[in-house]
Design a binder for these strands. Structure first.
Lengths: 138, 138
DNA sequence: TCCTACAATGGACTTTGTCTAAGTCAAGCG
DNA sequence: CGCTTGACTTAGACAAAGTCCATTGTAGGA
């Protein structure tokens, strides 16, 4: 919950009104917002916050590992506050709705050494695509 | 492998110099090019080809299922001519190098019904991330 | 309280992609 | 072989998402 602010402060993050607002926005809604949507919500709480600051702050939160960057489409990055439980995404190809999902098994283990080409593989991101109930016309 | 041109002609594609050049670029290199890189290589063969045409043609090839669109980062879509064998991608987090990989198992089967939220799931895209041998300092 | 390094601002700039109106040309038809 | 026609191409304007930078502001320590 709001220990996000605690954690950040504990890490020596300099706390400013702008950063608090951005953190609150992410903390409050468990949906996947674009940078612009974060900005819009932040402006509602702190009208003079600038776009650049929102981008900077989001970037810092990602570096700190408090927020995940998700790239389900090429339109815009989305920010996922649910960084502390590993999960993947299910995306509606029509309307773009996103749900967090937890597949069985460990996809990382499914990549044999012979298919790693000497890479040090550290992460895997799975995106399921399909139609949500609304868009499927159900 | 130049049957790409054959297949396209067989599908009633109107063949123009521009389309042939784009198809040749994709057919020739088995790397994952961005639209801009495709354009650059196309220009080398046909200087007066326009950016819009490259975008249009790539979009058509994707619609026809001859080429895959890959979004491994948010910078730019990449185009994968290897559309006829299902595969996933391994991306270097530092330099962006991409390799095609073939994991074991079927990730689609690993998503239980309870995690589908009523979606009609039709596709899955797996992106492994890590460091390539060069970037890992090996 | 005062200082100073770090943060925020806003506006210009870049990158990637889309759209449109006007011109061009591949391919079928006679 | 040379029209005709509608699909294709073009250049450039436009749009969306994000980055950069010089200036101004301020959190937090001494």
């Amino acid at each position: 919950m709001s220990d996000l602010l605690e954690r950040l402060r504990g890490r020596g993050w300099r706390m400013t009104a702008q950063r608090r607002v951005v953190a609150e926005v992410l903390n409050g809604e468990h949906v996947h917002l674009t940078a612009d949507e974060v900005h819009a919500r932040a402006v509602a709480k702190l009208p003079e916050i600038s776009r650049a600051t929102v981008y900077n702050t989001l970037g810092e939160l990602v570096s700190l590992g408090e927020v995940l960057e998700v790239t389900t489409d090429k339109r815009a990055k989305r920010y996922d506050p649910n960084a502390h439980r590993p999960h993947h995404h299910l995306v509606c190809a029509r309307c773009g709705a996103i749900r967090d999902v937890h597949p069985n098994g460990n996809p990382l283990a499914d990549l044999p050494d012979a298919e790693r080409f000497g890479f040090t593989v550290s992460d895997v991101e799975v995106t399921y695509r399909g139609l949500c109930p609304d868009c499927a016309g159900g």
